[in-house]
């Protein structure tokens, strides 16, 4: 008898273990749900981990107010499918109440502002662990992230002083006011995510698939024209056949030209890709250590 698990089965078993460990070690965990493919896979795994019970934590959406419409529609349907609770933290509300000041200029983004809304939401609901869909293959600072990642009482990450993680043993002990970020998908790669979505037949927002959209180029990126982001006078718009490799704020997530209309098309495209998926994110391009800097402050 051959008792060997395929790599997807091993990754699934590991992620489910982490999700259950989070439920067991913390009083009040939450799952950060962006409507992107990674958090969709994580929520799907949560459904499996606790089935036939509902996941014992709510889904939390930090809403920048600058979403692609398709994502919001998808969110509500998916939450219903999972029979999960939804908590929304609003960046617009953080702006209205003066907690943050909106960035100005053509490259203004609410990406950085999300951190304040996220930390406020964590404090308001007293969440002591937030499950995130981050993967170690995404970005160089993430490659050093733990499954159970400690945050001090300012929500900060201290990358030089992380707890060692060995075997299947995770240390979630903390002092009052501190919290944890937990990353069940740490060992998935972008390709693994797509292969898992295909295997499990997980429904996805339509903008991951090829469609016609009005776009313009800025700093080598293909940005969508939306009510939140308009081209400047010298920027020429045209309609192209595109899709999104990641889903974030509409103001800083670039599209790629693509004819991929099925999961198989996407998998073939990912296999041949010569750019990382975060290459489509203007927020990572602000400096060499943009991700590490944001993570230290408490970003996802």
């Amino acid at each position: 008898m051959n008792y060997k698990l395929s790599h997807l089965d091993q990754l699934e078993a590991e992620a489910i273990f982490i999700l259950r460990e989070t439920a067991a070690q913390f009083q009040n965990p939450a799952l950060l749900f962006s409507g992107g493919k990674d958090s969709i896979v994580m929520a799907w795994l949560a459904r499996k981990a606790f089935w036939p019970a509902r996941p014992p934590f709510p889904l939390v959406h930090i809403d920048t107010g600058h979403n692609f419409g398709e994502t919001m529609h998808y969110r509500d349907e998916f939450v219903a499918l999972l029979r999960a609770q939804l908590v929304v933290g609003s960046v617009q509300e953080s702006i209205d109440t003066g907690r943050v000041v909106e960035e100005k200029g053509p490259n203004a983004s609410r990406n950085k502002l999300q951190t304040v809304t996220l930390l406020d939401t964590i404090e308001k609901h007293q969440f002591d662990a937030c499950l995130g869909g981050g993967r170690r293959d995404e970005e160089k600072a993430r490659a050093k992230e733990r499954f159970f990642s400690h945050r001090d009482d300012f929500g900060q990450w201290d990358p030089k002083n992380q707890r060692p993680e060995l075997w299947n043993l995770f240390n979630g002990r903390m002092n009052p006011g501190e919290h944890f970020r937990v990353f069940p998908l740490s060992n998935f790669t972008e390709m693994d995510i797509w292969m898992y979505i295909k295997r499990e037949e997980i429904p996805l927002p339509s903008i991951y698939f090829s469609h016609q959209r009005e776009v313009f180029e800025r700093n080598g990126q293909l940005l969508a024209v939306t009510e939140f982001l308009k081209p400047q006078d010298h920027e020429k718009t045209d309609t192209r056949t595109v899709r999104f490799r990641t889903i974030g704020d509409a103001t800083c997530t670039g599209a790629v030209e693509s004819n991929a209309t099925t999961l198989d098309d996407i998998i073939a495209e990912v296999a041949a890709a010569r750019q990382t998926e975060r290459g489509t994110r203007a927020d990572d391009k602000r400096s060499e250590t943009a991700m590490e800097d944001r993570k230290k402050e408490g970003y996802f």
């Binding site: 170690r136 293959d137 970005e139 160089k140 600072a141 993430r142 490659a143 050093k144 990358p159 030089k160 992380q162 740490s186 060992n187 790669t189 390709m191 060499e288 250590t289 590490e292």
Partner: peptide
């Protein structure tokens, strides 16, 4: 492999880094 700012500044690897290939 040296992802953290301190590592790049000092030219040393501080922490375990996980890498993936297939």
């Amino acid at each position: 492999t040296d992802g953290l700012k301190a590592e790049r500044e000092q030219g040393i690897t501080i922490d375990v880094a996980y890498r993936y290939f297939a």
